[in-house]
Simulated scan of single mutants.
Amino acid sequence: MSQEQDPRTGLTVVHRRYVPYAHAHYAGDLVDGAYCLGLFGDVATELCIRTDGDEGLFASYSDVQFLGPVRAGDVLEVTGTVVRVGRRSREIDFAVRVVCRGRPDVRESAAEVLPDPLVVTTARGTVVVPGPA
């Protein structure tokens, strides 16, 4: 007997966030990788609310990849897509893309929209939600 795909599979949530200069921790206005993991938590919370009417709890990350720098002044697009639905668990693929970046080489407040967003962090995470009542 073939198993039907759960209609929650494929649901995607997108958040956008400006990275304030107060979050820079390193030379070159770099932001630590934990910043993106926190954004994944925000996206996962919305996904759990949409799929199950509950904020859920993050259980684990797997295959976290830091692929490029995140800098203060960036505008980030954070996506999460449900890829597997278990009885109480939901597996989510995450990505952070830089869609705008500061251009201090032009002037202090200059910035540009990137023609091709830069994928800077990816991960897979598992969240758990309460079981059926």
Rank of each mutant, 00 (worst) to 15 (best):
103 R>N: 11
97 R>A: 06
99 V>L: 04
101 R>P: 04
74 D>F: 08
91 E>K: 04
87 R>G: 13
96 V>T: 12
64 V>G: 02
74 D>T: 07
75 V>Y: 10
76 L>E: 02
100 C>D: 14
91 E>C: 01
73 G>T: 11
78 V>I: 15
70 V>W: 00
80 G>Y: 03
75 V>W: 13
68 G>S: 07
81 T>C: 12
62 S>D: 15
89 S>I: 05
92 I>F: 11
62 S>G: 13
89 S>N: 07
64 V>C: 06
67 L>Y: 09
99 V>R: 01
74 D>W: 10
62 S>R: 15
101 R>Q: 14
62 S>I: 09
103 R>W: 08
94 F>I: 12
88 R>S: 15
75 V>P: 03
76 L>C: 05
93 D>K: 01
75 V>A: 06
94 F>E: 07
84 R>V: 10
89 S>C: 04
66 F>S: 08
96 V>R: 06
97 R>H: 13
89 S>A: 06
98 V>Q: 04
75 V>R: 12
89 S>E: 06
74 D>G: 07
79 T>K: 15
66 F>G: 06
82 V>T: 01
94 F>V: 12
91 E>T: 05
88 R>W: 08
95 A>C: 09
97 R>I: 01
75 V>H: 11
90 R>L: 14
77 E>W: 00
67 L>A: 11
85 V>T: 15
91 E>N: 05
94 F>C: 08
100 C>F: 08
80 G>V: 07
73 G>M: 08
101 R>A: 14
77 E>G: 04
85 V>I: 13
97 R>Q: 09
69 P>R: 06
65 Q>F: 13
66 F>P: 06
90 R>D: 10
83 V>E: 12
80 G>H: 04
88 R>T: 15
75 V>G: 03
63 D>S: 13
64 V>I: 14
95 A>L: 06
101 R>T: 09
90 R>V: 01
82 V>R: 00
100 C>N: 13
76 L>N: 02
98 V>N: 03
